[in-house]
Design a protein around this nucleic acid. Structure first.
Length: 194
DNA sequence: CGGCTGATTCGCT
DNA sequence: GCGAATCAGCCGC
């Protein structure tokens, strides 16, 4: 069952990030369906968070999709070669987003393997899962549930099954780097880093 | 316009 | 453990 986009239009991006654990990300690209359970997320806020691309209402061509209504995909290029998938949250005009950092593969394993060309894990990292699911920057702005991407309801995790930590790779954000805005399923083997 | 940096990953040392 | 790959955005000249 698809998650209603009302859920993503919450004004509490941190809470949304936490609740997304256990849900399923589905992509249907080139006739191939791939499914993964979300096991790791990070929250980014457009206001008062220096780690966010759209902080301080910074509007560029790249961040434009982040200002759309919650339930929109925001995909951007990092280090010139990696595509990172985010789900936009909050209402139109307020640029919050949740970065999906890791998935536990559920369906379409052979397709992921073919896309990735590696034998080892291919969904335990934000750039890896995007490639395995066939997601790229051309999908930024796509509406979840009305495009090749959708998010489905899953098993809700209880607090003692969730680990909270600081976000990865945002040291440049000063004090905001220490915000406890990263969530992952405790003891899950597919989490990118401990 | 040149130079630097990043929500990363891989491969070699 | 370090550097390359490689591009959008930003800052300084």
């Amino acid at each position: 069952m698809k998650v209603n986009n009302d859920f993503f239009q919450s004004d509490d991006v941190v809470s949304v990030a936490r609740q997304m654990l256990g849900m399923y990300l589905v992509s249907e690209v080139d006739g191939n369906k791939t499914v993964g359970k979300i096991v790791e997320t990070e929250a980014y806020s457009g206001r008062g968070d220096r780690a966010c691309h759209a902080n301080d209402n910074k509007r560029t061509k790249r961040t434009e999709a982040m200002y759309r209504a919650g339930g929109t995909a925001y995909v951007y290029l990092c280090y010139g070669m990696h595509h990172l998938f985010n789900v936009v949250t909050n209402v139109e005009g307020l640029a919050d987003a949740v970065l999906v950092r890791a998935l536990e593969p559920v369906d379409g394993l052979d397709v992921m393997k073919e896309r990735y060309g590696k034998v080892t894990k291919y969904t335990n990292g934000p750039a890896k899962l995007s490639k395995a699911m066939g997601i790229d920057v051309s999908m930024t702005g796509f509406v979840l549930g009305e495009s090749c991407l959708s998010i489905h309801q899953g098993q809700k995790l209880s607090d003692d099954e969730i680990t909270v930590s600081t976000r990865i790779g945002v040291d440049y954000a000063g004090d905001d780097a220490s915000l406890p805005w990263r969530f992952y399923e405790k003891d899950n083997l597919w989490v990118s880093k401990k």
